[in-house]
Design a protein around this nucleic acid. Structure first.
Lengths: 97, 97
DNA sequence: GAGCTAATAAGCTAATAAGCTAATTATTTC
DNA sequence: GAAATAATTAGCTTATTAGCTTATTAGCTC
């Protein structure tokens, strides 16, 4: 399992969140993703590595390209766990002691 | 509203998450919080400032001390918003419902 | 106001992370 | 195997952040 550190840190960058958003519509290749941004290709590649480490995306080679795919399970588990951890007895809605 | 940047960045540090955990049991003074950690007092004070900026805690002066209190609403809103944003058609609460 | 305590701000150092360009590793194609 | 394309890794620079120590602000007590 990815650590909360890795997950939250990965999400703290707007470019990376934008990459995740881009992947909502389906898997895309690294180059395809990089083409959507102004940053240089290697820069996006490194962002993708951070997202991979955090297990927010999965990468799979498909012939000559590598397809990245959104995976929200780790995020959801991290958040759920963290909410329970923060507010053990409580409701999930609003804080209400 | 605190930006997602601020919220996720604040949560990316284990010391800060531990501070939040500590505040589950109720409001505490800065000094009281700092006493629970090995780090120097000003260091914890700065972590608290980061948490304040992210609106994950609220600070209220109470006589000579300042009381910090956990506030989970921003976190919950950020996460909820982000999940919807990520997974527009999908379920929000629990994955697989 | 002087003295005391609680907390933050300022200033510094070391480590981490983002961005670039150039070089390297895979994979397909000829 | 050489050439071409896709993607990552390496190396560098700059900016941010965590940690410390010292200095300053805010409130209380006398």
């Amino acid at each position: 399992m990815a650590t909360p550190d890795a997950v939250f840190k990965a999400l703290a960058d707007p470019t990376r969140r934008e990459i995740l958003r881009l992947l909502r519509s389906g898997p895309r290749s690294s180059g395809d993703i990089a083409a959507q941004f102004d940053s240089a290709w290697p820069t996006i590649s490194r962002h993708l590595a951070v997202l991979r480490d955090a297990e927010l995306v999965t990468a799979e080679r498909n012939g000559s390209t590598i397809l990245y795919e959104l995976d929200t399970t780790v995020f959801q588990e991290t958040v759920e766990h963290f909410l329970n951890w923060l507010n053990p007895g409580g409701s999930h809605g609003k804080r209400r002691s």
